[in-house]
Nucleic acid binder design. Sequence first.
DNA 1: CCCGTACGCTGAACCGCACAAGTGACGAGC
DNA 2: GCTCGTCACTTGTGCGGTTCAGCGTACGGG
Lengths: 339, 339
Amino acid sequence: MKRPTIADVARRAGVSKGAVSYALNGQPGVSEATRQRILAIAAEIGFSPSSAARALSGATAKAVGLALCRPARILGIEPFFMELISGVESELSARSYALTLQVVTDQEAEIAVYRRWWAERRVDGVFVCDLRTDDRRVPALEELQLPAVVIGGPGHTGALASVWSDDAAALVETVEYLVALGHRRIARVGGLPSLLHTEIRTDAFTDVCRRLGLDEASTVWSDYTGEEGARATRRLLSSARRPTAVIYDNDVMAIAGLSVAQEMGLAVPGDLSIVAWDDSPLCQLVHPPLTALGRDIPAYGAHAARQLLAVIAGEEVTGAQDETAHLTPRGSTAPPRAT
Amino acid sequence: MKRPTIADVARRAGVSKGAVSYALNGQPGVSEATRQRILAIAAEIGFSPSSAARALSGATAKAVGLALCRPARILGIEPFFMELISGVESELSARSYALTLQVVTDQEAEIAVYRRWWAERRVDGVFVCDLRTDDRRVPALEELQLPAVVIGGPGHTGALASVWSDDAAALVETVEYLVALGHRRIARVGGLPSLLHTEIRTDAFTDVCRRLGLDEASTVWSDYTGEEGARATRRLLSSARRPTAVIYDNDVMAIAGLSVAQEMGLAVPGDLSIVAWDDSPLCQLVHPPLTALGRDIPAYGAHAARQLLAVIAGEEVTGAQDETAHLTPRGSTAPPRAT
DNA sequence: CCCGTACGCTGAACCGCACAAGTGACGAGC
DNA sequence: GCTCGTCACTTGTGCGGTTCAGCGTACGGG
């Protein structure tokens, strides 16, 4: 089956290629009657303009890129990225933009991918995830002048547009909630310390604990995997004055922590309260169901996609705040048992 | 920053565009010395040929497509797709092929996407997931003559290449294992009945149960979500002669089932043994850890990617069997308590 | 009545690359 | 010494679009 070209449409409509181009792109230069005729013929023979030819003649590639820098097993276990992609996609496909995905091993590889995409004119813009402080990707993208939206922040995004969520506020809300329940010894199992949002959460945790006079607040770091979450929990619960509540930076670690607590004979929430960041359906599957900080990730992705399309369209776009995660109390949090 | 073109390289090397093209594509027509000089200059100024121009002049788009037909929340909760994508990607990026992703709502939309990708010459080939019996996508792709690899089967793939795993064998192994433990009343919570692999597993389950003389074997269907898995489990465990072992078609439903059992006061594995299909890290996070049927999903994806690249290269490719899932016994299975 | 102009369309020049055909130099063979 | 072949390039063409200049026609105003 031969692919139809614009010339085929033009021939059948008895007009020139140019006229077809105007008609299909909604540009002036053809009468309404002719436009309708051309549109009908194009639909009839199933014509879609070649993305290559269109990209070549100066227009856009109608594609955006997303490079993911995580090993396969973490990528799989965290619902975050897949939900984000769903949301991004919903916005992109409505505008018939394609999403090009690439999994990379480190920041340098990611920058190389951006550079290649740019040189190949493969994408019109990119999303940047897992922002770090002093992220080398930011200046690299600025230098390339490749439209980009950072999914994360605030801050450290240079001149790039960004979409961010106020993790500090969410963390403060959580700590205040736990304190209101009566907790005084609260610990936190954080994600990778090199990521900006981990740092933001850590700072917020330190601040709010100081403000509320909780001097036994401590953060330990992990890497989002269940194994590390379990190890960190074991360490916390083995200490002399073990915490009565733990906040985990993702749901997988929280579930692992719950298992460890139960295995050590601690009742949840009686002896230990648990809060998970990221409220996936998993949190409701375990016993007790986990109190979690959730937000609409697909909507976050859609928001980022709208931002990127705006940047590509040449609009002046800066940072945009997305919804703040909200706490959904479930069975894993309660007042600490009187000691 | 202006993007370098082949003309820029040619000018700096003091040769024609044609010579540069030959040099970069490893074709004869330039001396080795000149080739090296051109390569060095191209690397120096960061030149990559425009994918659009390359695709336009008859070559390939150097991109393949993957359309996913699942709602966002299921896509997120199942590690399967993300792991598959990682594996696919590892193979593609080594050959500098790009992966274009699209989330669609139904089969018709998916076929429309294939048709558009084909007309736009956006991809050189596609992956087909979630195969059904009498899948309309198969004839559609055959008609378009768009290279494709079905991830699933065996059978019902028409003339398309495919990569499949012997789910029937894995299921038989599982049932035999449970029977060896002493179970006689085994139930199964299946996935979406319209999917081919669900049907294959159901048939295998029915067959092996008949062969082993288990006449109380029953399958109930679900949709891979925790809620549905919990509901199905509740139904099974409430019946007069409740099963002593349940096999779940994915890990999320198995975890939900475990919760339901514990909530109903049944001991796992004492009163009920549980086996999960898909062995993600989640299975080891719960208590007791779940006996699971696992396999290397990234490797599966990589296998599929190699198949697709072979089809694109014009090689004669048919079905290829991938690794069979193997049972990893953990704490959720044991002999049934004597009644 | 004639000119200016808006409309509707055509023809051609690009975009950046691959590849076929052409060219000049040089060496081998008779 | 002349031809022929090969090598190492160059030139030119076309892929399928977009876009701009140009051009005939109809129409309205002075």
